[in-house]
Structure formats: structure tokens, C-alpha cells
Design a protein around this nucleic acid. Structure first.
Length: 430
RNA sequence: GCGGCUAUAGUUCAGCGGCAGAACGCCUGACUGUGGCUCAGGAUGUCGUGGGUUCGAUCCCCACUAGCCGCCCCA
């Protein structure tokens, strides 16, 4: 019988890497809280129609990457229903916003989420079929200020802060405005017309894109095509006055806050619901999937799925890519426990458990050796997992004076049992 | 979904149509309550899965699966 394995595009996360995941999530929660975001948890699967209407029927995500199944009726009173594992979380959050009438509060809603998403793509570095996103949405009725360019700038400033606090160095913020959907449609035609003459001189991919999806030409990475692309009309020239003003206000606020960014006229990627501000934080060393996070404004999304007017802006961080970046960046020293308890002889095992209980209840982390180990083996095991070793032999048990050796300094100390927790805590610098 | 590369020990990888290898890691001893260094010894394993060619396949061929790289798309 063949052995069972994690299915393609999914994987197990094991220690010590999971410690990094936890650190990232804790940092994100801490930073989000400072900006007054609250956590929202939406279901992992939703009605298929939500994504079709929200993300866009024509996007690759919806047309070929979703895990969709027919949830069949089990009783005459039930109807079967098409369900889909969420490929992203914004649509779910907006659905919940509408369902719970959060707009009726009149308050701006600032919501964040952390959780798995699912897309049936070919797996690659930084791209998995089950992947985790950390995202947030700022959404509300126009009267709550949800449409303000200040919200865009605040979100971008928060992301810059988050990446800095995570210790990600060398990120780049690319921003652009794709305007209203009418602006985008207009630009599409302008681009298509401009490409008629130029495309034949470009790569085969671009020749195809010029016809099927002109905006994608802007993503082309072929060096020879770059001069042609630079000469194409820019989307900024197709924006209406209001969108131009909005974008200028976003960049003005970023300038004032000192958040560095690059105006990238070629950043047009995104799902159907994006309007006006779009952005992406990229990082070298991620290969083809160099986007750490992406997002933008979606002023028409709520209405597209049957809700009230509720402009918003949000982003999604690829948590898997964050982990890859941090792993490549640092030689994460494995965290070590405060003490390793080494009982000398199996008859001392019970006493060792009792001592471990004392330390752990005092809030210290401890690993428990075994009395069958020879002292040398205890030392070797201890040095790998702990900062210090606490020796518990007959003498120590009888006298109540324990022997503690610190691996970093090599110093050995006799410590009365009653003072042990305090001693360990102090010499940990806590 | 398309193209390319890869799959051998816990890990990183070498290898050859004829008994399965190195380094690191692991275990044991020198060393019975003091580790890291050293020395001596030991175990690593369905050579990804299934088929084919062959006297004989880990090696050659085919298929499948998985990973990586690129395309597509996206986080």
C-alpha cells in the first residue's frame, strides 16, 4: 500500500518554523491593534456566487482556480448548493459587513483576518494550494470617511510599520491608481489602439496579450520589450479629475509621514473589484512570486454583491512569503528553554518531575531529562535544548541545594531550591 | 493549464548496468556526578511509485507522483 502524503500544494508546518509563524502573527495582531483594527473570522467556505460576483467571473481565480463542489441536498426540504473554498478573504469580509449591517452603525469598520485560503494553481516557491493570508479591510458608509485618501495612506503607513517591525529589510512599496471602472475601460481601449502598431515588434506573449488582455503587457519582463512598454500611454492620463485628486492626496499624506514609495505606472494588476489606489509591497529573493502583499481600494465591491454603498480599502499579505523572506534573511537561532533538569539515576525521576512542575508553574520553560541518561548524555541533550542545566542528584535532593550550570558563561552555581525559579528568571535578564 | 530541471541515509549531496557512498547529524565506548574538543567503533536506506529493456536496473526507456525554475496568474 502506498504511504499517504500531504496532497499536492499543501504542506505541514513543523517546529521550529512554526515559532516564526507565531511571531509574525503576534506582531501583526499587535500592530493592527495600535491602529484600532479588530479581528474578524469568516467561514473557510462560502456560496460560490459570492466569489463569482465579488472577485469577478472573468478572473483566472474564479474561472479556473477555485475548489468548488456541489453540496448536495440530504432531505426533500433542502436544496443543493454550490460551495467554494475561499480563494481570498475580502469578499467574505464584505459579505459579513453586509449581512450584519455593520454599515448601520455609521462607524468606519477596521477589520483584520489571518487564515488559510485555497487556489488550485501549479505549486511553486512561495505559491501553495493552501496558503495563509494576513489581511485587513477598512470599510464603511461614505459618511464614515471610508472614501478618504487618508485611509489609503494610513493603511500603507501601517503596512510599512508592520514590515519594519517584523524585521523585513529591503521592501519596496509600489503604488498606482487604476481609477474608476470607467477609467479602466477607457484605458484598456487606448492601450489596445496603441499596441496595434507596437505589438508585432514585441515578444510572442505580448502579441497575444495585446489582443486578449492589453493591461498584462505592462507586466512583461522581457528586456527587449521594455522601451516599447515605457513609451505606451499611461493609465494616469486616462483618469478622471476626481481619481487624480484622490491619488494626489494619498501620495501627499505618504510624503508627509515619510513612507517611501515608488509610483509604478505599470502596476495594474488586481482583481476586478479594485478601483483607484492599488499597491504592492515587493521583495527580491522571492523569485517569480516577488509580491509580499497586495491590495487596493474597492469602492464598488459591496454593491456588486448586493450591499449598500460601502467604499473600502484593504490588502492581503502572503504569510508563506513573509516566512520565506524572513527565513532567507536571518539565521533564526532556535529558542532554548530556561533550564534542562538532569536527574542522576532513575530513582530521582519523580523528584525531577516535581521540580519541573515548580519551575513551570513559576512561568519558566523547562525540559525534563531522564535518570537513565549518563551525565554526559544529559549535558549533550541539555546544551541543544536549554540555556542551563540543573543537576538533581542524591546530594542535591538531600541538601536542597541544586547545581546550576550556564552554558553561555560556563559558570556553575549552587542554588537553594526555594530560590531556583527566581535565580533562573534573574539570570535570564527578565 | 504549458515548458524545463530534479527525486539516493535524518539533512545536504556524490555515484555506478554487477555487494549502496561522503560530509554533517545520530547511537555506543574511551570518560561510573560535568557537555562543547579529540579518538575508536556502529546504525543509517523499499536509491519517489509502477511498468518495460536486460542474465542482472538505483543507473537505460516509458508512465505516474512530488519538488524546484520559468510562463500564466496572484499573496
Amino acid at each position: 500500500m502506498s504511504t499517504l502524503k500531504a496532497v499536492r500544494g499543501t504542506r505541514d508546518l513543523l517546529p521550529p518554523e512554526t515559532a516564526l509563524w507565531n511571531r509574525i502573527e503576534e506582531t501583526a495582531r499587535r500592530v493592527f491593534a495600535r491602529y484600532n483594527f479588530g479581528e474578524i473570522r469568516t467561514p473557510v467556505f462560502e456560496d460560490t456566487a459570492l466569489f463569482a460576483r465579488g472577485v469577478g467571473e472573468e478572473t483566472d481565480i474564479v474561472s479556473k482556480e477555485m475548489y468548488t463542489w456541489e453540496d448536495r441536498a440530504r432531505a426533500a426540504s433542502e436544496k443543493s448548493q454550490s460551495l467554494t473554498l475561499r480563494p481570498e478573504n475580502t469578499a467574505g469580509v464584505v459579505r459579513a459587513y453586509i449581512e450584519h449591517k455593520l454599515g448601520e452603525t455609521g462607524q468606519l469598520q477596521k477589520l483584520y483576518y489571518i487564515g488559510p485560503q485555497f487556489r488550485r494553481e501549479r505549486p511553486q516557491k512561495g505559491r501553495y494550494r493552501q496558503f495563509s493570508q494576513i489581511g485587513a479591510e477598512v470599510i464603511g458608509p461614505p459618511s464614515s470617511g471610508s472614501e478618504s485618501p487618508l485611509r489609503d495612506a494610513e493603511v500603507l503607513e501601517m503596512l510599512a510599520t508592520l514590515l519594519d517591525e517584523l524585521g523585513i529589510t529591503g521592501w519596496t512599496l509600489n503604488i498606482n491608481s487604476v481609477g474608476s471602472s470607467a477609467d479602466r475601460a477607457r484605458y484598456n481601449e487606448v492601450l489596445r489602439a496603441a499596441l496595434k502598431d507596437v505589438a508585432p515588434k514585441m515578444c510572442v506573449d505580448c502579441q497575444r496579450r495585446a489582443v486578449t488582455n492589453p493591461l498584462r503587457v505592462l507586466d512583461c519582463k522581457v528586456p527587449e520589450d521594455q522601451p516599447y512598454i515605457e513609451a505606451l500611454p499611461k493609465i494616469s492620463d486616462s483618469l478622471d479629475e476626481e481619481s487624480k485628486k484622490h491619488f494626489a492626496a494619498v501620495t501627499a499624506a505618504l510624503d508627509a509621514a515619510g513612507v517611501p514609495y515608488v509610483r509604478n505606472h505599470r502596476l495594474v494588476r488586481g482583481l476586478d473589484y479594485y478601483t483607484r489606489t492599488t499597491f504592492e509591497f515587493t521583495h527580491g529573493g522571492l523569485g517569480a512570486q516577488n509580491a509580499l502583499l497586495g491590495g487596493g481600494r474597492y469602492d464598488g465591491l459591496s454593491e456588486a454583491i448586493g450591499g449598500p454603498k460601502a467604499p473600502g480599502i484593504g490588502f492581503a499579505i502572503g504569510e508563506d512569503r513573509l516566512v520565506l523572506t524572513l527565513l532567507a534573511q536571518e539565521t533564526a537561532a532556535a529558542a532554548k528553554v530556561d533550564a534542562f533538569l538532569a536527574p542522576l539515576g532513575e530513582e530521582l525521576n519523580p523528584a525531577a518531575l516535581a521540580l519541573a512542575r515548580e519551575l513551570r508553574r513559576a512561568g519558566l520553560s523547562a525540559e525534563l531529562g531522564d535518570g537513565s541518561f549518563r551525565l554526559k548524555k544529559s549535558f549533550e541533550a541539555a546544551d541543544k535544548t536549554a540555556r542551563r542545566i540543573v543537576i538533581l542528584g542524591e546530594d542535591e535532593l538531600a541538601s536542597g541545594i541544586l547545581t546550576v550550570k550556564d552554558f553561555a558563561t560556563g559558570t556553575q552555581t549552587k542554588v537553594p531550591r526555594a530560590e531556583l525559579a527566581e535565580f533562573l528568571r534573574k539570570s535570564s535578564g527578565e
